[in-house]
Design a protein around this nucleic acid. Sequence first.
RNA 1: GGCGGGUUGCCCGAGUGGUCAAAGGGAGCGGACUGUAAAUCCGCCGGCUCAGCCUACGAUGGUUCGAACCCAUCACCCGCCA
Length: 423
Amino acid sequence: MASDILDELSWRGLIAHSTDLDALRRELTGDRVTLYYGCDPTAPSLHVGNLVGLIVLRWFQQAGHRPIGLAGGATGFIGDPGGRSSERNLLSEAEVTHNVERIGEQLARFVDLSDGRGLLVNNIEWTAGLSVIDFLRDIGKHFPVNVMLAKETIRNRLESGGISYTEFSYMLLQSLDYLELFRRHGCRLQVGGSDQWGNLTAGVDLIRRVEAASVHALSWPLVTSVTGEKFGKSTGGGSLWLDPELTSPYAFFQYWINVDDRDVGRYLRCFTFLAREEIEVLEAAAVERPAAREAQRRLAEEITSLVHGAAETERVIAASRALFGQGDLADLDPATLAAALAETPHATVSAPLPSVVDLLALTGLAASKSAARRTVAEGGAYVNNVRVADPDAAPTAEDLLHGRWLVLRKGKRSLAGVELKPA
RNA sequence: GGCGGGUUGCCCGAGUGGUCAAAGGGAGCGGACUGUAAAUCCGCCGGCUCAGCCUACGAUGGUUCGAACCCAUCACCCGCCA
């Protein structure tokens, strides 16, 4: 049963590279294997880019193995040179500490930590007390610089303007993590995105040299959308965060609802735990009846409940159904309308209603009043689904739904609520 | 330490005294079309009290009627030399 894990991951498009796959498969069919995935605390939240890692950990846990989530309190200070063309800005200690805490909470939601079935660690534990001399003698000695220079991440940086010694050293720290987890917890597998492959194998090499042990690394392909690298960037341009404070569950849900038809099958495979047969049915449906958007709906529901829980997902679905439904907004009952608008960006205003331009800016639908003015001029502004022509006109009392609300829309899919505060 | 090159709007990148809120591309936004999709076409894309005004071309100061463009100083980046 547990032997199916690699096949499962492979079917889901989650295997890019691996060290000896057959040897890994043998280990996985035997005893419980301990594996780890690390995230650096570069922000106070993980984003969808890290979601694959969390999902992979859970797959392994479900297959009976023991996952370790690592929050990089130490590596977060250094900055991973991979995937970028220039140096990172260093974070302050307070930022890193705060971020580690938040990220730990998120990791804990995907990995069952009860009864030692999973672990949460911070690499500051074994690096804080490490002296420079010990580090250079015990770790640095095992890293041939010529090998490091050949790694793709380093090479890219050398070609695009250089790299500091600090970031150059990142690989050593990540390798040290693997070594420590091997020693402390018998960790024999590190998983990560394919951009981490160089760091993953560096750890494997270090363990072979120091401990004469053969351990494994497994990477998944970086998830991309058909239209290019903008995956994970929400339509507003920012990242899609897992933290509801940074990306509202409504916006999160909407992102997945709007996924391109060509991507939806792939995303169902790698971002959900739905059974193969079910995904195949959904993929077929997406081809045969694209208008129904069943696959996107299911994808959005699954991922949103994975990240934000079933209850929040119910609220978001209800809101989307109410606001994007065919019916007249005026027909929605007050409770439904209020609940729906609560999920969208919204603003509260008092007595004399502001102009449409002000409302667009106030709710954040438009980045500025100038942008709002443009939207109106372009015919993209709607109040209660009715296009607005005059940017300076203010909605009247008759426009208010149930005497209190306005549904503001920009374009086809950006909605916001406005509530009139009772005088 | 020396010499040379560079720093432009979300990103890339043109611009070397007025015609510059700054070419072009990408991203993004709106419209038409539609399926809260893609493709295509059209329009937009610094801010504001919007036929006008304000702020911007690494920072500061200067020359000039006038500077992203000239000069000086500083900061950072890149290359070559020591």
